[in-house]
Design a protein around this nucleic acid. Sequence first.
DNA 1: GCATAGTACTTTGTATTGCAAGGTACTATG
DNA 2: CATAGTACCTTGCAATACAAAGTACTATGC
Lengths: 116, 116
Amino acid sequence: MTSTENHNLENHSSQMRKGILEFCILLIIRTTPGIYAPDILRRLKDIDMIVVEGTIYPLLSRLKRENILEYSWEESMSGPPRKLYALTPKGKDMLGQLVLNWKSLSSSITSLLRHE
Amino acid sequence: MTSTENHNLENHSSQMRKGILEFCILLIIRTTPGIYAPDILRRLKDIDMIVVEGTIYPLLSRLKRENILEYSWEESMSGPPRKLYALTPKGKDMLGQLVLNWKSLSSSITSLLRHE
DNA sequence: GCATAGTACTTTGTATTGCAAGGTACTATG
DNA sequence: CATAGTACCTTGCAATACAAAGTACTATGC
């Protein structure tokens, strides 16, 4: 495999994630309110979504700025304080809508897959 | 609803599509080899994926350049000639991989949704 | 007290993607 | 020849994900 082809494959894999990433993060936070960034990264890794800090921190900041997420501080025994994230009411509404979008998209793709 | 909030909603809806778009286009072409761009746009619209020309033409060109798609020309009675797209063998391999990725992602999200 | 390592969060620069808007070129119609 | 319809392409912009480097807090070893 050439380095170009390798780059293409990585590129396509990462493209598949785009947009879905934010959706997954919101789902994880809804499932586990009070979670902090490193644990979100671990949960994403568990579902084969490798994401790095430089991706997730600006995303969490933006969602906070947009009043979709809120956080509280927690002192840590082993390092700097942690930001514990939870959905705001607006975030819950938005996630509800995203879930509907996901189900619609997922069902359309399933129907395209039926032609395999 | 303020214009800012409206912008956010549109933004989030469009983000949900990112990356999935290429996957859907490849699925559509596999289902209907010899399809041309305006018909791909119509099929995307049918599954609630509104996409514009300025998005799809550069994407198709890139996939051609990467040897994932190929096309042949067809004369048209009612305008300029059309590019009829089909998957190359490499494109079929890649789509097969993307389908596996999709199934894995989809099953992970389904499991996150179970906590609703 | 001070250097080191580990943890948590942040910032900067770059590449890629999708979109809006506008452009080129072909055909049919009046 | 002008207009409308169709098909394809290009340009400039905003948003996202990443790599890499930076800041700041705590615990440990000396």
